[in-house]
């Protein structure tokens, strides 16, 4: 079983994001970058599939600036077998990402592609679904459980949806995107980090793939959100009730 995992380099969710004063982007000084948390979960699931089967290959792919190799190295240390770094200096939208990934899928022929449900920088929640459409493959987004059939020909995926949990099934190949409760990603172990140094990161250029990645969605300006002021602090329920009743008039 070959599993491809798409990982994006994003600002650490713990960092404070500030908009540049001219609105052209976010301040990138002092930002620490990490693997998009959902993609770490996707990678963990791929590793578990491989471990359960006792065979297979987990391949990472990341598209972006050269520095994505840091995140790929982390993923290799967690246990992925090899990685592909697709160099691309221009801004991409999710359609561009999906088009590049579709090319990589064509070259690698994985049975499963795992992605995060959403990149926590653009908050788009699109690339997995778009990739599925481009390939004509089935998709199971927002996965909280993945169950591979005994013959390894199909999967059942439980999905976090409105009002409960839905299970869908499909014959492989297919696309799965991870939600938060799918698993808890492991940390890279010291031996894992040592081994990762020798694993291959293949570098290719997006321009050489022959796909149109001109963004169709462009960001023209960023603004900080309107700031909400903190209000009154009280110490008793009686004071709170008076305010809710007389001032806010919500109770």
């Amino acid at each position: 079983m070959k599993v491809l995992v798409a990982v994006k380099r994003v600002p650490d969710p713990e960092t404070t994001i500030r908009v540049k004063s001219d609105g052209s982007g976010i301040e990138t000084d002092n930002i620490k970058y990490v693997i998009n948390p959902f993609d770490e979960i996707a990678l963990e699931e791929a590793l578990r599939i491989k471990e359960k089967l006792g065979s297979g290959e987990v391949i990472l792919v990341s598209i972006g600036v050269k520095a994505v190799s840091e995140q790929l190295r982390t993923g290799l240390a967690m246990g992925a077998d090899r990685a592909i770094s697709v160099g691309c200096d221009q801004e991409l939208d999710s359609l561009g990402v999906a088009r590049i990934l579709a090319k990589i899928v064509e070259q690698e022929s994985p049975e499963i592609v795992l992605l995060g449900k959403q990149a926590i920088d653009d908050d788009a929640n699109q690339a997995g679904q778009m990739l599925a459409a481009l390939l004509g493959w089935p998709q199971a987004t927002f996965a909280s459980e993945v169950e591979l059939s005994d013959d390894q020909q199909s999967v059942k995926v439980t999905r976090e949806v409105d009002g409960g949990l839905e299970t869908v099934g499909f014959a492989l190949p297919g696309i799965i995107t991870s939600d938060l409760r799918l698993n808890e990603p492991r940390y890279a172990s010291l031996p894992g980090i040592m081994k990762a140094r020798k694993k291959e990161i293949k570098e290719i250029a997006a321009a050489d793939l022959g796909v149109d990645i001109t963004p169709r969605l462009t960001v023209q300006m960023l603004e900080p959100p309107t700031k909400k002021e903190g209000g009154k602090k009280v110490e008793t329920v009686a004071e709170l009730m008076t305010l809710l009743h007389d001032e806010a008039k919500v109770i």
Binding site: D93, S94, L95, A98, D123, A124, N125, Q126, A127, G128, Q129, M130, L131, A132, A133, L134, Q139, T141, F142, R159, E160, V161, D162, P215, R216, L217
Partner: peptide, 23 residues
């Protein structure tokens, strides 16, 4: 952007070969 809207719209956009804005 319900669970269904999020799952469905990007797939339609890619079938049409167009970009999409979420939320």
């Amino acid at each position: 952007s319900t669970a269904i809207g999020k799952d469905l719209l990007p797939r339609v956009a890619a079938r049409l070969g167009v970009g999409m804005a979420s939320d």
